[in-house]
Design a protein around this nucleic acid. Structure first.
Lengths: 195, 195
DNA sequence: TATTAAAAATGACCATAGTCATTTTATGAA
DNA sequence: TTCATAAAATGACTATGGTCATTTTTAATA
């Protein structure tokens, strides 16, 4: 990687770090882009070379959650029972989430709002969904899941309750009940509605 | 109701109408508050006496969806099969949604984003959830649903796939597949994941 | 090393969301 | 009808997100 490339990544990381620090200290809305760039010792315009909008800093944070997912997926023993596996994976996502509750809440709101997520970031999300679907497909092969299941849709459904859990927790400010809320909904999905 | 009260409601409605008209014509971001108030023949500040932020106009629109739900709930024959009933209710929500696709997309984004929904509006949403839960509880009594089910959580789960459907459709701009997307997910929930 | 073209940084500038002290209007009591 | 009070309207003003033509830096080539 050229010097230029390296500098670029470093600067982006620096802007990201300083932004988060300020957001934590003063709250997202009370931090101006001017302030961020002043803190980084760069001009205002430079910020916009790295993040197209102020809110994209939050987007960046939110998507880093996906790395937690990948890590958690890797470390799960492949022979684990699928139900347990799903619970573990989402649980570790929630633990990571709770650590940065305030900012992550904002980030999720932004992610949900921005229906125009660009290339790099969209790819991250798709990767998340695909991995989950693949995991489910494998479990289905092994007869651990209903034979009638479409793994793609099932993955999508899990993600829907994942986000829903975040929404419920955020709007009621119950930062500590994420796992519990998820589990309740997961049980519904696991057992199904039908008699 | 006093003259003043009446005027107030009328003016709010007028601002709402004109805003929507302009949003439809030019797109939300290309309409300024100045323009809206000019169109209504009022001063800029007056707008903010009725809507605390520009985006609250969209919030107002989005919440009007809830009325569609209530109406749809009423008109469903009480003896209808619960599965069919659920599908019908959400289907009519989607039909209403599709009619104002562009604006409703924006509205949903805003609603998801605003975790600070105020009194009147929060109440509308809660009412939505409670009605749904009541309906499920009744069906459960009649043995139309799994005996293990918590109606409250089940209602919440349905709402999660409702919003998820909207999100998926919005981000892929498939305005016409709302019902299909919902149904796929609903099937998963209906049958459950377990083998 | 000199030349050049692309990448990145810059900051003056603009547009507009949102504020607020002031003015106008409605209401109801005296 | 007059007066006092509260509600509502006003629009000049401020703050800040975001743009863009210009300048500076980097890296490759001759």
């Amino acid at each position: 990687m050229s010097l230029r490339q390296k500098r670029k990544e470093e600067l982006k990381e620096e802007i990201f770090r300083q932004s988060l620090r300020l957001f934590k200290e003063k709250g997202y809305d009370n931090v101006t882009v001017d302030e961020i760039t002043r803190e980084c010792g760069i001009a205002k315009g430079t910020f916009y070379n790295y993040f197209p909008k102020k809110e994209h800093v939050l987007l960046h944070l939110g998507l880093s959650q996906m790395d937690v997912f990948s890590a958690s997926l890797e470390e799960c023993r492949p022979d684990t029972d699928i139900k347990e596996k799903i619970e573990k994976i989402f649980s570790s996502l929630f633990v990571a989430f709770e650590k940065e509750w305030e900012l992550m809440s904002l980030a999720v709101s932004e992610i949900l709002r921005t229906n125009l997520i660009s290339g790099q970031e969209l790819e991250t999300i798709n990767h998340f969904t695909r991995s989950l679907a693949a995991m489910l497909a494998e479990a289905k092969e092994q007869g651990q899941l209903s034979a009638a299941l479409n793994p793609q849709t099932a993955a999508s459904t899990l993600i829907s309750i994942y986000f829903h859990t975040l929404m419920v927790a955020i709007s009621s400010n119950e930062s500590t009940r994420l796992s519990a809320i998820f589990r309740e909904h997961f049980d519904v999905i696991w057992n199904g509605l039908k008699p």
